[in-house]
C-alpha cells in the first residue's frame, strides 16, 4: 500500500488562499486505508479550512468528493460536473492520484494536500512501516523475505555493517537492523550458509535509474 501524511496546514492554506471555491477530492484506496485522504479526512480538512478562512473574513466554498480511486481516469471522470464550479482542486490522494486529476483537468490548478511517503505495510492499528522501494528486481527470495533495500538504512546488499548493535541500526536505534532480521530468518529456515554468499552488485537499471518506468501488458493493453 502507498502511505502518506497530511501536509502541514500552513502549506495547504497557502495553496488555496487565492481561491474562493475549492473542489476537495479524496480517494477511497490506499490513502483511506492509512487514514489520510478518505471521506473522513476530506471532511475534517474541509471543516478546518473553512474555519480558518472564516477567521480571516473569507467564506471558502468547498465541495467534498471522494473517488473510488484517483489514479484511474474513469473514476476521475466523476469530477467533471463538480470541477466546473471550482477555482482549484485540492487532492488528498497520493502523487499518482494528483497527477491523474491534473492530467484530466488541465485548465484547473491542482494541489496536493498530502505528502506521499512510501510503499509500506501496517504493523498494527495506526503504525505503518516502509517495506518496498520498487527496485524492479526483487531479491526477497534470497534474503529470507526481508528487503535489504527498503529496510537497511544503507541499502547494503551484503550486510550487516559494523553499526549493527543488538539487532538495531546505528542510524536510529528504533530501527531493526534488516540484516540481523535476515540472519535470524535464514537461521530459522536452516539456510545460514546463504549469508556467506556474496551478492553481486545490483543492476539498478530496473529501478528509477533507468528513468520513469512503464508496464505494458500486451495481453491486456488495448
Amino acid at each position: 500500500m502507498i502511505t502518506a501524511v497530511r501536509k502541514p496546514m500552513e502549506e495547504i492554506i497557502a495553496c488555496v488562499s487565492p481561491y474562493d471555491r475549492i473542489l476537495l477530492a479524496g480517494c477511497n484506496e490506499c490513502v483511506s486505508v492509512c487514514s489520510v485522504g478518505g471521506r473522513k479526512e476530506v471532511s475534517l480538512l474541509s471543516s478546518a479550512l473553512q474555519m480558518h478562512f472564516l477567521k480571516q473574513g473569507k467564506t471558502l466554498e468547498i465541495q467534498e468528493v471522494t473517488l473510488e480511486r484517483q489514479c484511474d481516469p474513469e473514476y476521475v471522470e466523476e469530477l467533471v460536473n463538480s470541477v466546473d464550479s471550482a477555482d482549484a482542486v485540492l487532492s488528498m490522494a497520493c502523487g499518482c492520484g494528483v497527477q491523474t486529476v491534473a492530467a484530466r483537468f488541465r485548465e484547473k490548478p491542482v494541489f496536493p494536500a498530502v505528502n506521499t511517503a512510501f510503499m509500506g505495510a501496517s504493523e498494527r492499528q495506526g503504525v505503518w512501516s516502509e517495506r518496498c522501494q520498487g527496485c524492479g528486481d526483487c531479491v526477497l527470495g534470497i534474503t529470507g523475505g526481508i528487503c535489504p533495500i527498503a529496510r537497511c538504512s544503507k541499502r547494503l546488499m551484503n550486510g550487516p555493517c559494523g553499526g549493527s548493535t543488538k539487532g538495531k541500526c546505528e542510524i536510529d536505534t528504533d530501527i531493526d537492523c534488516a540484516w540481523q532480521l535476515i540472519w535470524d530468518r535464514l537461521k530459522a529456515l536452516g539456510l545460514e550458509n546463504r549469508i556467506e554468499e556474496i551478492m553481486e552488485a545490483k543492476d539498478w537499471r530496473t529501478s528509477r535509474d533507468g528513468g520513469p518506468r512503464k508496464i505494458v501488458r500486451e495481453d491486456l493493453a488495448s
Binding site: 502541514p8 496546514m9 500552513e10 492554506i13 478546518a48 474555519m51 480558518h52 477567521k55
Partner: peptide, 8 residues
Amino acid sequence: ALLDEIGI
C-alpha cells in the same frame, strides 16, 4: 492539534 494548526 488541528485547531492549533489553523490558528484556533
